[in-house]
């Protein structure tokens, strides 16, 4: 894929989104006599401008012959980070801060290529404890889930 194809793809997505959102705004809009009191007038104006810019991006990319290679990306660590971070954010409240964090730090560090187990263990325990106590004692905000005193007694 080159930059030209990518620009067309992004342009089409933005154009499609702006048309869909404009349609939503028309469906749910209120009938106001003046534009200044119409809550949907300003968002509609933004969506028209967005649609025009996206359309221009598509048109320009279709008509141009110049195309540069897209930025190189290493997909494996990205997929691993997306999965790990997404799961962490999803289970953060239900599982609690301490259990989810002691799994995330070593797992993500390992997936990203850091394999020194002893350092990982020490770092995970000390960082989790520091953040928990920092929020609990200094900021008066207890992180969700079971607290550290459950483990330390």
């Amino acid at each position: 894929m080159n930059s030209r194809v990518l620009n067309i793809l992004y342009g089409v997505v933005f154009l499609g989104s702006s048309i869909y959102l404009y349609w939503v705004s028309v469906e749910t809009g209120v009938d106001a006599r003046r534009v200044s009191s119409d809550p949907m007038w300003y968002p509609q104006l933004l969506l028209i401008l967005l649609g025009l810019c996206a359309g221009y991006l598509v048109l320009r990319s279709v008509l141009t012959r110049e195309a540069s290679p897209v930025q190189s990306v290493v997909w494996k660590p990205l997929a691993a980070t997306l999965a790990a971070a997404g799961t962490y954010l999803a289970v953060f409240e239900k599982l609690g801060f301490v259990p989810s964090t002691v799994v995330l730090i070593p797992l993500l560090s390992w997936l990203l290529g850091f394999r020194r187990v002893a350092v990982l263990v020490v770092l995970t325990v000390s960082f989790t404890a520091a953040v928990w106590y920092g929020f609990h004692l200094l900021l008066n905000e207890t992180p969700p889930g079971i607290g550290l005193p459950t483990f330390t007694g």
Binding site: T81, A84, Y88, E93, L104, W110, L112, G113, F114, P143
Partner: peptide, 22 residues
């Protein structure tokens, strides 16, 4: 090490954002 640093940033992002409104 960058992997450890990035993992810690993800933790801080989650706890920091969650602590505002739970």
């Amino acid at each position: 090490p960058e992997p450890v640093l990035l993992s810690c940033i993800v933790v801080l992002i989650a706890i920091g954002t969650y602590s505002i409104n739970s």
